[in-house]
Structure formats: C-alpha cells, structure tokens
C-alpha cells in the first residue's frame, strides 16, 4: 500500500442535509495518487462526501483535511478541482467560451482550453452552444473544466453517467493517466462495473462505509465473481438486509433528465 500521508483524512464527520442525518461520525483516509471509486446506491451519501472534500458542504462536526489542509482552505481552490453531478456550465455559451472563462479564472493560457477540449473529445463541438449539446457532451464539457490547470486532487461526481461505453473507456483512460502522474482521483459512480477500473473502492450505503477495499479484494472477500454480487454480499454481511431496490425512496433524482439520453456520436 501507499506510505505517503493520506490525500484526504476525515474524522468524526457529521453532516445533516435537511432533516436527514447523512453522516454521523464518519472516519476515512484516502490514499494519494490513486483512483478511489465511491460506489453505492443513489442517496447513500456519495455526493455529500465529495462536497465535504471540496469544502462546499456545511458540516455539523468533525474534520475533513485535504492535502494536509482543512477542506475549503482558499489555497486549495487551485489544487482541488470538482465536477458536480449536474453539468455546471453556462448553457447559453459555447463549449470553448465556457472553458475559456474558467481557464481565465485560474489564470491559464488559451492553449490550456484547447488541451482540455481535446482531452474530452469535443474538438468538433467547440463552437457549439452548450444547450445544443447532447447529455453526454454536456457532461464532458463540465468534466473538461475540472481538468483545467494542474490540480492535485480531482473530485468527480458521476462523471461518466449517460456516456456510451467507448467514451466511458476513453475517460477512464484519462483518469488512469492522471493517477499515474501522481494525481489523486475520487470518482463516484453507481455503475458497479466501473469498480474494476479503480485502485481503491469505497462501498457506501446509507451514509456508512460498508467496505474500503480494492477491486481484487472485494471479489476475494465476498467469494463472488462480479462486483454487483460482491457488493450485495458485503451489505448482507454488514448486518442490514438489502432492500428490494437499491434506490432509497427519499433520495434526490440521480441526474437531470437530459443525462438520461445516451451520447450519440
């Protein structure tokens, strides 16, 4: 395992969103330079955990330290980048105008805009307005913004939702390249087959960590052959019988409707 100090260190984290106690004393360390996959049904707290790490979630107690500093410290804004589940772009601007604006906020040159547009494969759409993009293209525009500059930690909330398998593979290729260069990635997904692409896995359910493991260990420990089955098995052992549906009824809609459409190229 990694011997460096953790990229993210959380202790005793308590978060309440509305009337729901999402976390009640969460403890967690994430290793640097690795891809940690946050897996679990929607409503389990993945997005909230990511928001805590980025420092935009109001917390009731506990501590979250990121790259050795308290989450949300101003100097972390250049070192941590974030892409929310909802594609956070200006729909009335073109792809390149969107990315150029954020690049200027980080004080980056125009070449950086071109680099990230190519990285997410949107060269042909750069002049297109965001509201004319398909759901997958919109997600990639949002992701491109998160790739700007040289962040040390990327927190990506469901970056591959609504993408076709080919694009998904390409993006995971990018993530792998970033991790190989020493960048820490935290990527949430509720598609268990993406678990195999991560270095570490954090299986979550109802604000609790069911397991913090690796893809190989997940299968060995559970004695199952695919991650989906393995996850269900771990939940069973965790003491709480799985619900009929993995989705909790009171959770927020997983994505905006436009994400539902597959990305057609």
């Amino acid at each position: 395992m990694v011997t460096d100090s953790p990229a993210v260190s959380i202790s005793g984290l308590r978060v309440k969103r509305g009337k729901v106690q999402v976390f009640d004393g969460l403890d967690l360390d994430l290793a640097p330079g690795r891809i940690t996959g946050l897996m679990g049904p929607s409503g389990c707290g993945k997005s909230t955990l990511i928001r805590c790490i980025v420092g935009i979630q109001k917390v009731q107690g506990g501590s979250v330290s990121v790259l050795g500093l308290p989450a949300g410290t101003p100097s972390l804004r250049r070192r941590v980048s974030y892409s929310s589940q909802q594609a956070s772009v200006y729909t009335d601007l073109s792809v390149s105008e969107n990315i150029r604006y954020f690049a200027r906020l980080y004080g980056l040159p125009a070449s950086e805009t071109d680099r990230v547009i190519s990285a997410v494969g949107l060269d042909d759409q750069r002049k297109q307005r965001a509201d004319d993009l398909s759901g997958g293209q919109l997600t990639r525009t949002s992701l491109a913004i998160a790739l700007l500059g040289s962040p040390e930690l990327l927190a990506l909330d469901e970056p591959t939702v609504g993408l076709d398998p080919l694009l998904r593979a390409e993006l995971w290729g990018i993530f792998r390249g970033l991790a190989d260069s020493g960048i820490t990635l935290i990527v949430s997904s509720h598609v268990m087959d993406e678990a195999n692409r991560c270095d570490d896995l954090l299986l979550m359910r109802q604000g609790q960590i069911v397991a913090h493991t690796t893809p190989a260990d997940l299968l060995t420990e559970s004695g199952k052959s695919d991650p989906d089955e393995a996850f269900l098995e771990l939940i069973r052992r965790h003491g709480d019988a799985p619900r009929h549906s993995l989705d909790t009824p009171n959770d927020v809609p997983e994505t905006a409707p436009r994400h539902a459409q597959e990305d057609v190229r």
Partner: peptide, 13 residues
C-alpha cells in the same frame, strides 16, 4: 440554480 455559482466558488474567483 444551474450549479455554476457553486462551481465558481470552488475556483480562485
């Protein structure tokens, strides 16, 4: 409401 404000506040702006 679009999330761009939240995103802006995670940048050095």
């Amino acid at each position: 409401t679009s999330g761009t404000l939240e995103r802006l506040l995670t940048t050095p702006l």
